[in-house]
Design a protein around this nucleic acid. Structure first.
Lengths: 190, 190, 190, 190
DNA sequence: GATGAATGAGTTTTCATTCAT
DNA sequence: TATGAATGAAAACTCATTCAT
């Protein structure tokens, strides 16, 4: 039931993972607990479905937008990736936080899978600009690093962590770091 | 009681946070539940103490080693920071994961505080090499970004996430990214 | 659940309030603890329901009988009130005692409310015989005093307190006191 | 230890019987729990001592004052008894309430004993005025009834029960009832 | 004697899950 | 298929009491 997942997400936003009980989810969804168990094998299953739902949502948004906007220069592509990554995350910090609590616990593989997907998309984009990128740079490594950076700069921003460069500046710095990394030669190796 | 924290860490490693009950911690520590509650106000308090313990351990290791090794070039300093960050994390993935589950839930402020501390240390080191760094780069922003990158590249490595550049290569890339970022000029701005 | 209240009353009679645990009540009622908590918010709620149950029972018995038998002389009416007050109390001293322990703790308002109700009924009866009562006597004051006297003479009788006039004599004296009070003039004022 | 009983009484006043733990009593008394158990066999013993302490205090105050002031008329004697009964009760409603919770639970016999003592004193006083009292009245019965009335009118007043005649009026009515009872002949018998 | 850390049985309460209707 | 009352294992936490120092 779609409604059940919606209800779970709402409750996650409203009261967090602590108070998320099957009874409350069912009530909010307007069905009985019994019905909930008709659609999900157990609470873990519900949590997994919820994580999957949002992971897919993010993944789809990211891939669509990045692929759609993929015609400009390398700089423009990087810019686009940063923007869509920001936009595609749940903007409500409470929901974001709760999902981050759920995800590694109930759906570690999914998290990895989506991470891989995002990295693959980034790699594809980088490949389209191979000539602008330092030739000795492995695109897989680069994509991985960029994915990590993107995800976690955004994480900090959403959590309003004091150690973060906020808003616009954060994105500027992020872009700068990525561009410098992609275009610099080997000269800095130890 | 030191023994209780040790027991809690052990259980965290062995069975994860799910099964962490006050009774089990007390049993493992060889004391009674009552004694546990004599030293910690409640379960949260125990979790917080556990998080603090490891956070302090990491923070101390990082600051000591970085400050001790602070005499070389910028590249050497960055190298040192990467190495110590890697070395100072709990190497057991299970314990690492469990602490990462506990930390934001029971000790969000501590997490932020330690993050700030690490960033401050990084900034100090960067300041010592101001002349080697692009003059238009804000050192605070740079330190924040480096801290995020370091923490999460290591996170991925410990979690054996497929989207990560493992071991040596990861560190190479990380260093490359940081060095490129620090030494490149503005030319890449959009 | 009616059965749960019955079980609680039984346990109160058998083992007193000290050993009254939710688990035991549930067991005695033949249901699970979970069911108990489906019907009562917590232990206090159960205690309150129990007190209310008996308070209402007493209140109803008193008001019905007194109002039904309200046709005789003042002396007969007083007689009736004494008799019904005696008859309507829980006759098992253990239950009576336990309820008296519970009532002020968990349902002070209810106790007062029922007291007020009884007093109001008494006042009504007195009003019906206004001409037989000393004209300078405030009927509200008189009803209050009579209610206190009735309740506590019965209390002593049930508790088998040595300072009490037992059984028939107690009632005789009680009636005598009430009648003397109601019909005497002011002459005794200090 | 006198200090322990004082501490228990204070805690009873401050936080009620619910939160009265041996540890808190010991702390408030400035001794260790161990010492508490040196002077009292267990918690019940402490409670019993506390009840006894206050019961004796009341009993002594009542008997002394009544016996001291026993020279006037019957009306004056009754007046004196009412006054001293009021004055000798713990005036803090919280302490009064808490003691009333403790007394029947831990010291039923003491309660009865003190009741008997008070009744005996009253009877003695009545005997001194035998000629003013209806000759067919049993002085034991009369003392018992008066004791009940006194105790519970005061009880209501302290509890601020709505069914009570407050302050001065309460005492006036009480006196009137007692005097009417003592001096009226049999004529009111049913 | 005095101390107070240690004990652990016992309480209340929650909540995922089942199953008769 | 949907319901939701019933279940009961499990958890957190308390506190009277002991006893080694």
């Amino acid at each position: 039931m779609e409604a059940i997942i919606q209800a779970a997400a709402q409750l996650l936003t409203d009261i967090g993972f602590e108070g998320l009980t099957t009874a409350r989810v069912a009530e909010r969804a307007g069905v009985s607990v019994g019905s909930l168990y008709q659609y999900f094998p157990n609470k873990q299953g519900l949590a997994a479905a919820l994580v999957d739902h949002h992971a897919e949502k993010f993944s789809a948004a990211f891939s669509q937008t990045v692929e759609a906007s993929g015609h400009g220069t390398l700089a423009e592509t990087v810019e686009a990736m940063i923007e869509v990554a920001m936009a595609a995350h749940p903007q409500d910090p409470k929901l974001y936080r709760a999902l981050n609590e759920l995800a590694p616990r109930y759906r570690a593989e999914k998290v990895q899978e989506v991470g891989s997907r995002i990295a693959a998309i980034i790699k594809e984009q980088l490949a389209r600009h191979r000539h602008e990128i330092a030739p000795d740079l492995d695109l897989g490594d680069a994509a991985a690093l960029i994915e990590i950076l993107l995800e976690n700069v955004i994480h900090r921003a959403i959590e309003r962590h004091p150690v973060s460069v906020s808003g616009e500046r954060a994105m500027d710095q992020c872009r700068r770091m990525i561009m410098a990394y992609l275009t610099s030669g080997q000269r800095h190796a130890a």
